[in-house]
Design a binder for these strands. Structure first.
Lengths: 189, 189
DNA sequence: GGAATAACATAGCAGTGCTATGTATTGTGG
DNA sequence: CCACAATACATAGCACTGCTATGTTATTCC
């Protein structure tokens, strides 16, 4: 994990590569393009990591496992995560950000189909709310104010959210707990 | 609301003031100190705004009203809000950040005392979880990816959180709804 | 195999935060 | 009341930043 936090400058980037500063302009069109490409890469990695959560017979567990994968992804590369949401949200490929949500939306749909969630639950809305919890935890944890242990707040928070969506409290608690405890593994490149 | 987002430079700051760049070093000790002072001011304003939420007879309503005040504060000055959580969390006066939470913690305690929340609820934990929801919404909304209307997700999310803490679902829904609809007013300076 | 095009390197520009130094201005002890 | 020390700034300049204009190769196409 990076700790030094020295500034990322154009000249420091090309220092060890034996290449000149112009290469950055050839491939990225400047520093803005480089940061943009980096954010894009961050969302691609995130989407891949969420997609790597193997679906089980329990869609609520899978939702919690994806939440754990989301937070773990942020903590594995906190600087990258912060860069992703630093600038105004203008990705040249917004599809990558949508893919992040889509895998959540699908699991909410599965939970509806299996009768765990009520029929009037909007999958996109509930997925977005799960995202808000994951981002809130990841953002505060990577920024500093939230202690590491507070990440387990995701368990009661997600449980409350999914119980409100219709799931049985006891069963939901077990599902979320098991999903959250799932050791998230970085997907192969 | 600021839209231009031109870079904040030392020379552009002192341009119209008839003062030289050295004044910034006399009063803030450099740009880092200036940004730090700006973050500090942001937390002071936020704490004042949360403290300005007048307590009612319904502590759950007050919690939701503080959530609304938190998000409104972020949306009134989105650039300031982002600066607050941009850098590593090193405030010269962490008390200002703690004050932000304390007013929430007190309302959770009131909800416990009135029997709305269970006795085993940890006020600091539940206040922190409310903060996570508020920050998640505010951060995603000010960064761009979340549409404006999604801020009302706070209502079902907070309701789910407080119902899980022991509140009656129907009563909690009414309290949170009323609290969230409270028009937040900027406190006098 | 000559020409057009891309992929770089070199050098330099305007602008950045910051500091060394100089110069008033203010407060203070006798 | 006044020499004097300390503060509050202004001026000039340094090292560094992202970026661009121009030159120099390499590659590709017909």
């Amino acid at each position: 994990m990076l700790r030094a936090r020295e500034p990322v400058t154009l000249r420091s980037l090309v220092a060890g590569t034996g290449v000149s500063t112009m290469a950055v302009y050839t491939y990225f069109g400047g520093m803005d393009g480089l940061w943009s490409a980096l954010r894009q890469e961050g969302f691609t990695l995130l989407a891949a990591r969420l997609a790597a959560v193997a679906p089980s017979a329990d869609p609520v567990r899978d939702l919690a496992a994806q939440g754990a994968a989301y937070v773990a992804n942020a903590l594995d590369a906190p600087d990258l995560y912060r860069v992703m949401f630093d600038a105004d949200f203008e990705l040249e490929d917004p599809q990558a950000a949508d893919d992040t949500l889509d895998s959540l939306v699908r699991n909410v749909g599965r939970a509806k189909d299996s009768g765990r969630f009520r029929g009037d639950v909007d999958p996109l809305e509930l997925a977005t709310q799960s995202w808000v919890i994951g981002h809130g935890l990841a953002s505060l944890a990577t920024a500093g104010p939230l202690p590491e242990g507070a990440l387990t707040y995701a368990i009661p928070m997600l449980t409350g959210l999914y119980v409100a969506a219709g799931d049985d409290p006891a069963q939901c608690g077990r599902s979320v707990e098991r999903g959250w405890r799932t050791d998230p593994v970085t997907p192969p490149m």
